[in-house]
Write a protein that binds this DNA or RNA. Structure first.
Lengths: 151, 151
DNA sequence: CGGTGATCGTTAGCATTGCTAACGATCTTG
DNA sequence: CAAGATCGTTAGCAATGCTAACGATCACCG
């Protein structure tokens, strides 16, 4: 059977939904929600950046990011800092506690996946890696089509 | 570079999150939310089934499914029907309108992906297909590990 | 130099999804 | 026939997403 686009789209959708539900459980278990962990990840690895940049990186509207950052700040994972040269901007930077929980979350998630990933042979991992690459490509292609439409 | 599990987990997480955000936009555009479309899909393709079965299929608690079904029913996509032999059960079945929007949603999603999927060469599609298979395997492996833990 | 418009982040308010706890109705079993 | 189990619902909480509207700050042009 040759894989047709329609079936691939359905399967991809289901697979992504199921995967995220599993990962979300792991994230909840360490005491942080998925969107927050995702935003925190950007802050930790992407250095300090403004709320607006963070919203764009997470593909979310500014009001939503305001609340996520507020939550992260209340938990002590990030801090807001007024920009020195532009009073409108707010720089978000990670605290040591934030870096710690990122590491914990990653470890937790990895351990959740590890049994399965490590059970994969070299061939399986290569397939996963190339599948991820394809998904990323589809992803950015769709995003581009979308932004072009809305422009 | 040989792909290591940690990096694969991170990339997979990001790829899945990004993909779902794109797909959700398509679903929202046709006037139905992601969880509802997902549940509707199970009802359409899985024949009539009880609310509890549907909740399990979607890996969601019964109260959540009650509300999703209520929403679908208000929009005329499904109907509740009392079970003939067991008064506690509620059978959920799809309406013609429900089947129609499923087809529309699928078409929409496929068209969103099609530009990218169809741009893939035979090799790309094969990579995507095998990647999906691997993700599904990881998925069910994690689910199993989880339920065993909680038992 | 001053004012007008753009940009940034926030607040307020709405809908949806997810959960747990508790309940009423129905079935099953002793 | 009574006691416990099962099913779906209701009520109430927290989190995420959106749009609309606002105050503060900046940039630009006359």
């Amino acid at each position: 059977m040759s894989p047709n686009p329609e079936a691939l789209a359905d399967q991809l959708h289901s697979a992504a939904i199921g995967l995220l539900r599993q990962l979300r459980r792991e994230d909840d278990a360490i005491g942080i929600t998925s969107p927050r962990l995702s935003a925190l990840s950007v802050v930790v690895f992407g250095g300090p950046l403004t709320l607006g940049q963070l919203a764009k990186a997470e593909q979310v509207k500014p009001p939503t990011m305001t609340r996520i950052v507020t939550g992260l700040e209340e938990d002590g994972f990030v801090k807001r800092r007024d920009d020195a040269t532009d009073g409108r901007l707010t720089q978000i930077h990670a605290t040591p506690k934030g870096r710690r929980i990122m590491a914990a979350g990653r470890a937790r998630r990895v351990s959740a996946l590890s049994a399965a990933v490590q059970a994969l042979d070299r061939q399986g991992r290569r397939e996963l890696a190339s599948g991820i690459r394809v998904i990323q490509a589809l992803n950015s292609a769709m995003r581009q089509a979308n932004t072009e439409t809305h422009r």
